[in-house]
Design a protein around this nucleic acid. Structure first.
Lengths: 288, 288
DNA sequence: ACAGTGCTGTCAAATTCGTTACAGTGCGGA
DNA sequence: TCCGCACTGTAACGAATTTGACAGCACTGT
């Protein structure tokens, strides 16, 4: 426990700087030279860097009110951790006058945590590589999901179809999969959403697709579906929710970001397609 | 000594993520949950947090090419202090190590803005009233959406069906709507997603449903679909995205929150249903 | 069915760390 | 010069950490 919760180690150190001995001042200089990392090494190392003896370090820690070197270090870590935390998920973005415990607010903060947590977990190079695959019109794209994530897969397909040809949705019912496999060939890309309750049949299906030459991109949760072993790229996400079921907000986020990035990556081709689509939509509206 | 000075621990970890064992994946998740602070404690503590044994931590460190846990930790410290001293690196800690202009980051900040903006826009009493309607088992529930939002509607249906009986998805194709109208009756609830490009046919359909006595709940964007005039409750949301199309993350958020709140509102009834569902799912898995 | 492989945790040895006790050093004043 | 005082480092101890060896376990393929 920090003796005075309100003051950081740095503040306390400056406050007491008048009553420090020579060795302690050396330590202070060494600490501030690389604050607070310099204090997060072993007491031996810290003493060596500051060119003092280990007991001198201990004496400084005690002078600052800590029980020993470990609690001094723990406080430094806590400060740093707080500093690193995102100021993102703060309270100003809560529902107007609903209480903090309202489900909307609990859900919103879970969603924000999931989103920022996922960004840390994600490898943006895997994301970019996936976009390169999706933007390659020589490859057909197949998108599939489990019972729950099928809706997300469908959403991705709807948008990708607007951006490029050759995109199809893998049927929800496994009984259609064998015949669907026939259409999967060498350079194809298969995007699979597989979250929690990993579906064993989906794993088999993915293995078959891979044997036929398809490159598999997996969008999964932080515990990572076994399909990862077959995938060329894996995008792990956080999906916790204050609910009986997981949250698919972040998977949808990834789907939308993939679409936007794919459109950007092949804008020359996409532009014409979108314009053509607009024309057809207008015509359809007029004819009704 | 770090074996390859050019790669950060995070990068190396992601690179090897395909060949990680279950315990190692747990460690990876724990580390990324609070990167890199989680790895700067003792090996004992780190193992405890990730719920694995201490040798597993050691094995991961060796797999990443370090001589032992201390050198692994030393590398983490070195990275962090480099980051702390370099003010340029300050901001990109929030999203992996991709540049600020990367589509993932632009999309993420748009999503956060949309979410917080929607919470301010939303009337939580309308939300609660909607939940009351959805939790009332005497009412059937019909859910529909436009071309794009149909996937969100489908997602809502999938989850609501797990929570209560009498939930159905309005078909995507307008040609099926007349016959579907036959099943809509007096106390029913109709949840409609209608965003931007408001669909005129959807407006007609909603009017017919209302004439038959259905209560309409509208989930729409901030410009508010004309269906609002027919609706008993309207939930306006923000949906901007750095993309050619709108973002449906917030509509999905509302759908998930509605489900969670509906489950809570009628937990007594729902619990039995969920348990029965679990039983059926297990049986299905065994019979395969 | 069954051997084989790979993964994981338990245990104990070896090392390192944190702490205490104590002796030495330097400085100012009598 | 000698004493007293405050500060500092050395040395030794106990505690905690790190690491290697081993055995149990699940899973795979024959």
């Amino acid at each position: 426990m920090p003796p005075q919760r309100s003051a950081t180690v740095a503040e306390r150190l400056r406050e007491k700087s008048g009553e420090l001995t020579a060795a302690e001042r050396k330590l202070m200089v060494a600490l501030f030279a690389n604050y607070p990392m310099a204090g997060l090494v072993s007491i031996t190392e810290f003493a060596r860097v500051a060119a003092v003896s280990t007991p001198s370090v201990l004496r400084l820690a005690k002078k600052l009110g800590f029980a020993g070197f470990p609690s001094f270090q723990e406080e430094l870590r806590a400060e740093l951790s707080a500093q690193l935390q995102n100021p993102i998920a703060k309270h100003d973005r809560w529902a107007a006058d609903a209480p903090d415990t309202h489900i909307l607010n609990r859900f919103a903060s879970a969603a924000m945590e999931n989103l920022s947590g996922s960004l840390k977990l994600l490898d943006h190079r895997a994301f970019d590589a996936t976009v390169t695959l999706l933007a390659d019109r020589k490859r057909k794209v197949h998108v599939g999901g489990g019972r729950i994530t099928h809706a997300i897969a469908s959403y991705l397909v709807t948008h990708l179809q607007m951006a490029r040809p050759g995109v199809s949705l893998i049927p929800a019912a496994p009984s259609f999969w064998p015949q669907y496999l026939l259409d999967i060939g060498k350079p194809d890309v298969m995007v699979i959403f597989d979250i929690r309750r990993y579906d064993a049949r989906m794993l088999e299906f993915a293995a078959s697709a891979q044997e036929r030459g398809a490159r598999i991109v997996l969008i999964t949760d932080q515990w990572i579906s076994p399909i990862a072993r077959l995938a060329v790229h894996t995008l792990p996400l956080r999906i916790e929710a204050p609910s009986s079921w997981d949250s698919n907000i972040v998977p949808l986020f990834v789907a939308e970001a993939l679409v936007a990035a794919t459109v950007n990556a092949a804008w020359r081709d996409t532009e014409a397609r979108i314009n053509a689509l607009e024309g057809l939509a207008d015509a359809g509206r007029r004819n009704r």
